[in-house]
């Protein structure tokens, strides 16, 4: 088992795959979080005319498998002749997917701020924006951050699915090596170890923050 044909350049190839995974994750999580914050505020604050359709649309992203979403988006971009490459398509889909979950997290965070606190700030003469910026944001972040970290890790893991569009990320890179070297277990173990090394410390940090910041301890 320890006589492996794996060379350093193969490992570099895996590292490139991991970099692609991280790039897709970084772009999608950034865009998705910004969208999620926007949608979350709309969901809590806007009238039902806005929030109900928005909730429905975002719910679709959470109830349809990501793989199907990716295939659909790819087919759509070629039908509409948008000329997106696999990277752009993956990032757009993953961003919307992230936004759908992030909206719920943001909504939960905002509604965890007691209405009395917000009324107090408004009656001190703060504008809506000041109330959001100085009162709601700090309090809501404490509640939302642990689940947001969980979401980020979830998106990192789910980004493995973009291999279906032909993007060479970590899992696809290891699959290519498996096909060439015929050592599935060894290479997949390395691949899994890389995922684990990225995910585990951050998951632990999330767990720690959740314990540290939970209101009733």
């Amino acid at each position: 088992m320890f006589n492996t044909a794996l060379t350093w350049s193969d490992l570099a190839f895996l590292a490139q795959g991991a970099a692609m995974t991280l790039a897709v994750t970084a772009v999608s999580v950034t865009a998705g979080t910004l969208l999620g914050i926007l949608f979350g505020v709309i969901r809590v604050q806007a009238s039902t005319y806005w929030s109900v359709p928005l909730t429905f649309v975002l719910d679709v992203f959470r109830s349809v498998p990501l793989l199907i979403q990716l295939v659909l988006a790819n087919a759509f971009q070629s039908i509409a002749k948008l000329g997106w490459g696999p990277f752009t398509t993956s990032c757009v889909v993953l961003s919307l997917y992230t936004a759908a979950y992030c909206t719920e997290i943001v909504r939960g965070g905002i509604s965890s701020v007691p209405a009395t606190t917000r009324r107090a700030s408004r009656s001190l003469g703060m504008t809506w924006w000041q109330d959001m910026r100085y009162i709601v944001a700090p309090l809501a972040t404490r509640v939302s951050l642990p689940s947001w970290i969980g979401l980020t890790l979830g998106v990192m893991k789910d980004s493995a699915l973009v291999l279906w569009l032909g993007l060479i990320e970590l899992l696809r890179a290891s699959q290519i090596l498996v096909t060439r070297l015929q050592e599935p277990l060894f290479i997949l173990l390395i691949c899994g170890a890389i995922y684990f090394l990225i995910s585990f410390p951050i998951a632990r940090l999330g767990g720690y923050l959740e314990k540290r910041w939970s209101p009733n301890d």
Binding site: K157, D158, L185, L188, C191, G192, Y195, F196, S199
Partner: peptide
């Protein structure tokens, strides 16, 4: 639990499909 939660589901399926072939 940690492996199940910290690696992609797709990786776990690959392990079952390709990885177990080693044994």
């Amino acid at each position: 639990i940690e492996i199940a939660r910290n690696t992609p589901a797709l990786f776990q399926i690959y392990m079952a499909h390709f990885g177990l072939g080693n044994f």
